[in-house]
Design a protein around this nucleic acid. Structure first.
Ligand SMILES: [Mn+2]
Ligand SMILES: [Mn+2]
Ligand SMILES: [Zn+2]
Ligand SMILES: [Zn+2]
Lengths: 143, 143
DNA sequence: AATATAAATGCAAGTACTTGCATTTATATT
DNA sequence: AATATAAATGCAAGTACTTGCATTTATATT
């Protein structure tokens, strides 16, 4: 998803292309990997921008909710990692507990689910992440 | 899982049956539903117990990790809900975004997963929750 | 170009844990 | 029963957001 598509996506969702929001998206594009609210804040604070930490958090969450960003709970400790989505389709992530590496997975359990388990429920969404120890990290013991 | 089984489960994991821990487990047994760290803290603070909030958080997390408790992120906002596990087997949960109702689901996506997606990874675990709007809450709009 | 309006921001205060560390306590061993 | 030891606790400080609200700003309409 390039910046042109992102602007369209914003417009489609009635979201404004504010200066802070654009600075955040540009920083994400430059980073070309995963960032945290804090790492973005530190990066953007150096520049003239000076964007509030709460603005960053709100944007990361909002942009994730419309599919522009991916978000994962890297250590299951409330520190979220974000990146520009690596693919257009809905997907989930596989996370190495040891080195923090994050890989996309096409599999979505919601599609596999026998619908009797969610009978009567509407507006279904799921949260799904797999944690493990990647090949590079096996041998090197512990975290 | 009754209190006898719980004690065995603790011993098996080299966990002590401390006074705070037992008070927490008893409170959970009485509550017979879902509680938060804060609701437990408020309840136990009234009594002679007077257990530190961090002790409660640490126990809830620890007891969840050995399967005595279930834990869910009810509103995806970092407030966790806990209960004594309703079943012995590993399982996940379906959560109503509107009323907060939590129902167990036997389905575990990790078992359904094509193993090529996690090739090279060991010690796999998954986090999986489904959010939706339950039958009772449909009609009543919004949250 | 001026105006209206909904969205977004920045600030300050709040929330829900989380962590480090010295001290206490439950259990196993003698 | 006394002792050793690993586990757990309580306290204080820290972290990572989150929320409410007055003010600002981007976009659509006139
Ligand atoms: Mn992704
Ligand atoms: Mn359960
Ligand atoms: Zn790794
Ligand atoms: Zn409901």
């Amino acid at each position: 998803m390039d910046l042109k598509q992102i602007r369209q996506q914003l417009a489609k969702n009635n979201l404004k292309a504010t200066r802070p929001r654009q600075a955040i998206l540009e920083a994400l594009a430059q980073a070309s990997g995963w960032v945290t609210a804090k790492s973005l804040f530190d990066k953007l604070s150096g520049q003239e921008a000076n964007i509030d930490f709460s603005t960053i958090c709100r944007n990361l969450e909002l942009l994730s909710s419309i599919g522009i960003l991916c978000r994962v709970d890297r250590d299951s400790n409330g520190i979220f990692a974000y990146s520009l989505s690596e693919m257009d389709e809905h997907h989930h992530h596989l996370i190495c507990r040891s080195c923090g590496k994050i890989s996309p997975m096409e599999f979505c359990p919601l599609q596999q689910l026998n619908s009797t388990q969610t009978a009567g429920y509407s507006e279904l969404e799921c949260r799904f992440e797999i944690y493990g120890c990647c090949r590079d990290c096996q041998g090197k013991q512990g975290k």
